[in-house]
């Protein structure tokens, strides 16, 4: 068996990395905000927000993809608005794959960040307030740095999830070579054609390595988060 990747397979790997990196970076600020709200605020409808955030984890991915298509397709309410106002098209583009991957990784990201924010003792935040720190300063100087390793861990998990996303992506943006054919979609296509097994196998190895590395890195940062919050 030939072990080196073909140009098409390289394209799929590069596309997956690009989609996953953008999905992680773009969802991170919102993920931190939502995690903070869930960890520190009490308000009517909090369980509803929590439910919505976790929905993609529980729904069949194809349902999420279909909902994205309905909302963000060129004729959908959000998709039509984005195209008319900003000229942004998501459906059947790699940018749409970024959106799908971001949404699918969001629950994992929020969960990890929420836990690390909850582990920051609110008494330390009170101490910062008495030292003259306004609410935003308390967040950026105490909460965020103390939760940082947990935030990195959450981002890595979301990245790994984005790398492997398949169902929502293929439903929303299809499986277009060079545009939306990520590693997962490429493996699926290769299994559908005679003689594609070798390519599928090579991409599977890439997927396993990336997932494993991400999990190990996530573990490492989660441990550091624990140490950091306890001050050792």
């Amino acid at each position: 068996m030939e072990w080196s990747l073909t140009p098409d397979e390289w394209t799929a790997v590069r596309l997956s990395l690009r989609v996953a990196v953008w999905a992680t970076l773009l969802s991170l600020p919102l993920g931190i905000a939502v995690a903070w709200v869930l960890a520190r605020c009490d308000f009517w409808g909090k369980s509803l927000l929590n439910g919505v955030v976790h929905l993609p984890l529980i729904l069949p991915p194809v349902v999420t993809g279909f909902m994205l298509l309905v909302l963000f397709g060129r004729n959908g309410p959000v998709g039509g608005f984005l195209e008319d106002t900003f000229g942004i098209v998501l459906a059947f583009r790699w940018t749409g794959a970024v959106l799908a991957a971001a949404i699918m990784g969001f629950p994992l990201m929020v969960r990890a960040i929420r836990l690390s924010i909850e582990a920051v003792d609110p008494k330390l935040e009170d101490a910062a307030r008495t030292l003259g720190a306004a609410p935003l300063a308390v967040f950026f100087r105490v909460t965020l740095p103390m939760a940082l390793p947990g935030i990195i861990a959450g981002a890595i998990l979301a990245f790994a999830k984005a790398m492997g996303e398949f169902g929502a992506t293929i439903t929303f943006v299809s499986n277009i070579p060079g545009e939306t054919r990520t590693i997962a979609a490429a493996i699926y296509s290769l299994t559908q054609v005679p003689g594609g097994d070798a390519g599928a196998f090579r991409l599977t190895i890439v997927a396993v390595i990336v997932a494993m590395a991400a999990l190990l890195a996530s573990e490492y940062f989660a441990r550091r988060a624990q140490k950091r919050v306890s001050g050792r």
């Binding site: 101490a127 307030r129 609410p135």
Partner: peptide, 20 residues
Amino acid sequence: LPPHKRRVGYVFQDGRLFPH
């Protein structure tokens, strides 16, 4: 007046130094 505008020096029972 919120705490950050009061200028109190508060020494807590448990210290509450920032571990990071």
